[in-house]
Design a protein around this nucleic acid. Structure first.
Lengths: 177, 177
DNA sequence: CCCCGAAGTTCGGTGACTGAACTGTTCAAT
DNA sequence: ATTGAACAGTTCAGTCACCGAACTTCGGGG
């Protein structure tokens, strides 16, 4: 968004948040991070995002402190920092709003509290234990509103295979740490 | 964002949410709605947004169903619908993240549960009654991190005068319903 | 009737996003 | 040592969205 041309004159923390995560694609990149995506090529395959934009967003998120860039013998990968993790409630809330108002065929993804084996309420609360689990304690699976015809990249395939724990590598083979 | 060129191929409710509220300025317009702003000129004065962009965003939000456009003898005004109201948790979460990570001088706005006269936790919970109040039950006031030098429009002035209840007209004179 | 303010629309200029092609680096196989 | 393939970007021309300023429209009020 560019701070010079941004929302700098707003004295509002929402405006400042949007400076860093309000650009096109940024929240979808972060969503993929919560799904366990870590490599450039996988973000690219799963999002159909122009490479130049992806490179820019990863750079911005890294310099803001939401992601950490690491080099490994098998390549580069990106991980959520504590700062990035704390975007989970906002991302979850937005997604729930989309499920509620913009998903005519039912929910596309269902989140459950792994420990309690219970689906979350739309608020993010686990009805069994009453807590608000963090992303690392959650599983995602397909809901009735999912449309399997839309995507066939390897990330989508992995997420379809069954419940997947957030923040963990979605691939059986350990092609990165 | 334009659906043709948008995130349509994503089968993700977050992507669909971003189709409607992910464009530049849109969430700030909605934030102002929660503060009780209802008129074109006031959005414009408070946000420093180009008139053409504001007109477009109000049109999009109205056609999506997040806002309702009403004509009154004194002019046009915009109100949040139920759909729009349900964005409150997402907006609050994003703002809290901005407060936590991007506001070096402390929080700029503090929200309290009117009934309990208690400040909210960052999760949105009221520590006194244990509930998660909706926007209509909340008051906003300036926090220690606020910077009064940034803005001097009449909306900012009204919000500075003291605690203000969300969704209510911030002006003493009833210049609109 | 004229003027004014509110609520837009129009328009030329600038910056951001897009898709495709290209570069550089690393690892594995020959 | 050389080739090739995969990965992680960069570069670039074209298009689209956003920007600020000027203009239009409409409904009162004097």
């Amino acid at each position: 968004m560019g701070l010079g041309r941004g929302y700098a004159a707003q004295d509002c923390s929402l405006a400042h948040a949007l400076e860093t995560i309000g650009e096109r694609w940024t929240l979808l990149v972060l969503r993929d991070c919560f799904y366990g995506v870590r490599r450039f090529k996988d973000f690219q395959a799963h999002l159909d995002i122009p490479r130049a934009v992806l490179a820019d967003r990863l750079k911005t998120l890294t310099s803001t402190g939401a992601l950490e860039r690491r080099e490994h013998s098998t390549g580069v990968y990106y991980l959520l920092t504590e700062q990035g993790m704390e975007l989970w409630p906002a991302i979850f809330s937005l997604a729930q709003w989309g499920e509620r108002w913009l998903s005519p065929h039912g929910s596309r993804r269902v989140f459950s509290h792994a420990e309690c084996d219970t689906d979350l309420e739309t608020t993010g609360r686990c009805p069994t234990c009453g807590t608000f689990p963090g992303p690392g304690e959650l599983l995602v699976r397909e809901g009735p509103g999912a449309d399997r015809t839309l995507r066939d990249d390897r990330i989508s395939a992995a997420l379809r295979r069954g419940p997947h724990r957030l923040l963990t590598n979605p691939f059986p083979e350990p092609d990165y740490a």
